[in-house]
Every structure is written in C-alpha cells, then in structure tokens.
Simulated assay, not measured.
Amino acid sequence: MVEQERRRAARCVAVSAAALLVAVLLASWTGLVHANNPSRDRFPVWGVDVSRYQGSIDWPVLAGQGVEFAFIKATEGSSHTDPAFATNLAGASAAGLRTGAYHFFSFESPGDSQADNVIATVPVQPGQLPVAVDVEFYGDFWTSPPPVADARRELAVLLGRLDAHYPAGAIVYTTGEVYNRYLAGAFPGVEVWIRDVWREPALADGRAWTFWQFSDRYRLDGYRGEEQFIDLNVYAGSRTDWEAYRR
C-alpha cells in the first residue's frame, strides 16, 4: 500500500509539472508572460523591429512607451522590397527614433545583387544605424542548410558592399543555431544582433553581441496590422555608449 501511494503521488507530481509547463508555454506564446525581462537599469536603451506586418504604426505612441530605436524591414533577396519601408522610415524618424534598415538574406541569390537591392532602397541618412542583414533559415533550408562555404562567400560580398556604402556599415541579425553554423569564428569585426527569446544570449565563440532581440511576442500600443505582436530589442551598452554608437 505504501509503495502504491508513493507511485500515485509521483504520478500526480508529474502531471502537475507537465500542466504547469504547458500553461507557461501557452502564456508565453500568447504574449501574456515573457521568459525574458531585461532590466532597464542594465539595458537602458530599448527598440523595436518592424515590417509591413505591423500595419499602420503611430510612431509617437510607440516612442512614448520607451522605444528609442527601430530597425525597419527594407528588402529581401535580390528584388523584394517591403511596401511599408519608406512610410515607416519617415514616421519613425519624425518621431525622434534612431532608425536603421534590415535586409532579409537569401541563400539563393548572389551577394552582389542583394547589395544592389539594398542600396537602391535604403537611403544614406545622418545618424542612421547600421544596415542589419537578417540571416536565418527559411523554407527547406530548415532541414537542408546551405553549405557553409557558399553562404559565407555571398554574405561576405553583401556585407562588404554595405560597409563601403553606408557610413554606419552593416551588422548581422541571426539566431543561435545559424550563428553557430555560419558566423562563429568567422567575420571578425562584424557586430551581431542576436535573437534569443528564452534567456540572455552568450555566443558560442565568446563574441560580444551589440543588440539582443529578447521577445518576438510583445504587445505595445500604436500599431494595427496582420501581426498582433511586435519584436523588442535592447542595446548592449550604456546610454553614454548609445549616444556615441556609430555616429
């Protein structure tokens, strides 16, 4: 009888723990709770990244919630442009945010033609943030990643041309998995914007990160579109560092 009671109690504990885990994951998925909650004392500069999916954005409202910078989707691959880029860039700039563009890297397009697309779309502006090159898996590449040498070759071409064209240069946005495959130990001097929605990131090769996307399921006032959530990011340095960053 004692052994049966112990087993029953153990099953109850296991079921309760599983139920709690499911509840936490569900709350995180719906944006009710957040695994990450960076301290504003430690990370005083916060920002968003947006695309057309956030729809119409009231940038002064967004800025009034402690948002100081915005990375705005501009381009993808060799030919696609985000239809909301120009509007978002103008709105964010007028609201006093420091702005930067981001480009979604295509594993299927030459780095040169991708650079042409970015340069034709993203104007050079005073005080702008670096152009961020978003390198992540998509489609079939989740299960069949491109060869490392091929991806690095085209990425090097793209980054080189953006560095030469834009005074603030270029950085790379990526996930931990993609970083480990394509960037760890490579591209010295290239700053990293890393996504980790579960914990504070630590890059495998010890490189410091500059920006951290800590949530992709935040809700703020001031936008209405297909996407109900907005991505939140922090800058790694102090406010003094931020005032001098890539100026």
Rank of each mutant, 00 (worst) to 15 (best):
residue 1 M to C: 02
residue 3 E to I: 11
residue 3 E to A: 13
residue 3 E to L: 14
residue 5 E to P: 01
residue 5 E to N: 11
residue 5 E to V: 04
residue 8 R to Y: 02
residue 12 C to V: 11
residue 15 V to D: 12
residue 16 S to P: 00
residue 21 L to M: 12
residue 23 A to S: 13
residue 24 V to Y: 06
residue 26 L to P: 01
residue 26 L to S: 14
residue 31 G to C: 09
residue 32 L to Y: 11
residue 36 N to D: 06
residue 38 P to L: 08
residue 40 R to D: 03
residue 44 P to V: 05
residue 46 W to E: 06
residue 46 W to D: 07
residue 49 D to V: 01
residue 50 V to L: 11
residue 50 V to P: 02
residue 51 S to D: 08
residue 55 G to Y: 07
residue 55 G to P: 10
residue 55 G to R: 10
residue 61 V to P: 00
residue 62 L to R: 00
residue 62 L to D: 00
residue 64 G to F: 13
residue 67 V to Q: 10
residue 68 E to V: 08
residue 72 I to W: 01
residue 77 G to R: 09
residue 81 T to Y: 03
residue 83 P to N: 08
residue 84 A to T: 09
residue 85 F to T: 07
residue 91 G to A: 09
residue 92 A to M: 07
residue 93 S to V: 09
residue 93 S to Y: 05
residue 95 A to W: 12
residue 95 A to P: 07
residue 100 G to A: 03
residue 102 Y to C: 00
residue 102 Y to L: 06
residue 108 E to M: 04
residue 111 G to N: 03
residue 111 G to F: 04
residue 112 D to V: 09
residue 114 Q to L: 10
residue 123 P to D: 03
residue 123 P to F: 02
residue 129 L to G: 05
residue 130 P to C: 07
residue 131 V to W: 07
residue 132 A to L: 13
residue 136 E to C: 03
residue 140 D to W: 06
residue 140 D to F: 08
residue 141 F to W: 13
residue 144 S to I: 04
residue 151 A to E: 02
residue 155 L to W: 09
residue 158 L to W: 10
residue 160 G to H: 03
residue 164 A to K: 14
residue 166 Y to W: 08
residue 167 P to D: 09
residue 171 I to L: 15
residue 171 I to G: 02
residue 176 G to M: 12
residue 176 G to C: 13
residue 176 G to L: 15
residue 178 V to M: 11
residue 179 Y to G: 01
residue 180 N to T: 15
residue 187 F to M: 11
residue 188 P to L: 10
residue 188 P to V: 09
residue 191 E to L: 15
residue 192 V to D: 05
residue 197 V to H: 13
residue 200 E to K: 14
residue 202 A to F: 14
residue 202 A to V: 15
residue 204 A to L: 15
residue 207 R to I: 08
residue 210 T to H: 03
residue 210 T to V: 11
residue 212 W to S: 02
residue 214 F to A: 01
residue 215 S to Y: 01
residue 224 R to L: 12
residue 230 I to E: 06
residue 233 N to C: 05
residue 238 S to L: 06
residue 241 D to R: 10
residue 242 W to K: 05
residue 244 A to C: 03
residue 245 Y to L: 10
residue 246 R to K: 14
